[in-house]
Design a protein around this nucleic acid. Sequence first.
DNA 1: CTGAAAGCGCTTACAG
DNA 2: CTGAAAGCGCTTACAG
Lengths: 345, 345
Amino acid sequence: MDTKTRKSSNIVEQIADELGIAVSTVYAILSDRKSCFASQKLKEQVKQLAAELGYRPNYIAVSLKKGKTGTIGLIVSDMYGETTLARIENMTKLAYKDRCHVFVGCSYDNPALEEELLQEFYYRRVDGIAIAPARHKGENKFLRKLIELKFPLLSFTHVENADIDYVSTDYFAGGYMAGEHLIKMGYTRHGFIAPEIKTTAVKERFEGFKKALADNGYYIDESRIELVRDETGKEIEKGAERLLETDIDSVFCTNDRVASIFMKVSLSKGKKIPQDLGIVGFDDTEIGRMCLIPLTSIKQKIEETAAHLYSVLKRKIQGYNTPCKILVKPELIERESTKRGVRKQ
Amino acid sequence: MDTKTRKSSNIVEQIADELGIAVSTVYAILSDRKSCFASQKLKEQVKQLAAELGYRPNYIAVSLKKGKTGTIGLIVSDMYGETTLARIENMTKLAYKDRCHVFVGCSYDNPALEEELLQEFYYRRVDGIAIAPARHKGENKFLRKLIELKFPLLSFTHVENADIDYVSTDYFAGGYMAGEHLIKMGYTRHGFIAPEIKTTAVKERFEGFKKALADNGYYIDESRIELVRDETGKEIEKGAERLLETDIDSVFCTNDRVASIFMKVSLSKGKKIPQDLGIVGFDDTEIGRMCLIPLTSIKQKIEETAAHLYSVLKRKIQGYNTPCKILVKPELIERESTKRGVRKQ
DNA sequence: CTGAAAGCGCTTACAG
DNA sequence: CTGAAAGCGCTTACAG
């Protein structure tokens, strides 16, 4: 038995010395390696000692050696609302099934910050990145670089003029559903309200909406399109008031929050919902469900989308790099705010 | 000049070979070390080459060497609501100022999962952990262990019978404020509604509420305390209906969601708010602001709390380990739902 | 002012 | 079946 007390501060070496075996054997035992043929008794001794000495595995060393960190970067573009939280939740939950953990970062729609975060995560050696890209346009050279390098990277939305892979909600289809639904419920004078359109996600839902109207012989007049200056409650209220001065009998709102404000303004003006006015929102959030007249809304299948995205990302991490552009259809959730008696077929 | 082409795959070695200098010099230049006295020209050459060869720093190696990862673990107990998202946001934002990143994990109120996550983060060598502890009681031995080890660990709430440091909202004070406010507005028959009380956070706000009533000569009768079976909308509605059959003229709801459901039920029964009925919520969320009658609510100062928590955590990481039990007073946000003409002084 | 060397804590061939 | 050695990519004294 080797008694030269190496007095190492490294617990694994201490164990090896104490038991007169090699460090590599200790590691083999401690990490339950299948190719470890130590006797049961030895294994127990080692584990016992490890516990006594307070051994803790060092995942950082493992990461360095393996060249994989078991880590994913998630970049969101805002820290507001159920959609963002759901993305965080889904990614962490899915990753954890593979014992992976996720770093969360927010670009606040700022391309420079987005670039920084991307680089940070890249240097930190995350195995892959999921990103909800900044909506305000701006050059992101680093994003392009990562795409060129074929770094495992996947987006939650389609990005104009960037060849990034994505798994996204089909916003166009969502808008189409909203339009179709209002028509089916017998509404004929359709309006649209949204804060100024800066994102593909919003532009597409509007395009889809218009297409549904057109396909059914309707047309949306300029005066019935209200593009509000910003997302503050004040501005949305003002927009709602203007829109209510037109002859609309229904409105598609870009999200549930806008819809709920619209509803409040409408009710305060004595409108009957859904009789005088049908309202459709987007996102199917709690706020819509809580409205005095529960809100019909287009629900993004966030969970399904996330599962898809994660599995593709995982494949990319494993080295498969097939291009991937996936659109997931949303779903119409019908509630009181459009439940007018008439149901035209 | 050393021409033995070591043909290393390591970019830094390649640079060193190419330029005939030592690797340590290359590293010194690449990481802009102040104690690096290489000539400006050499520095430029090195950086140039690094860019050409696509060098990327390896934070994992740095972490291993330095024994610090620049990483924080955040464990939340649910993935629901504005408070959780705000915690995630604040932690990531604050940490990022120090170029730290945060792993997010959720225990879903499950002590076993909580223990796992704690251990994962510990093994992953996060520098510190911020935790919103699981509310359902259950032994968490690992938590205790970390506390014993004096691992940098801080909680968002006080935990019964565990000596964990925390920076928390003062829920008792919040409940007290709610009670005091209702009394000041002239309400005299006070009720309380909440899903069954499992957490200190809720228990304390109720205790504070009762104290405010007692201090002002009021008393809350059993019949006016509605503890609902679970958090589903259905159960809360039923509870609200029962409570509305008593003679209450005001109610303190454990959170804004419950309050907004309560309001809906009340309105549908023809109650006038705030004249017949005053309602106070908790958390000051969008849902409360969106109510038909905007909701008076107790606002947790999440941002302030987070800033406090982060700075204490940082000190712990730096090795200072002074005990820390901090309560941050919340704030009453007065809106229409309690704005009754009478203002008793 | 620069460079050779040891070491952070692991894993993985490879030799015995 | 077990162990000695090299190496993952860095940093940090220390020698020159």
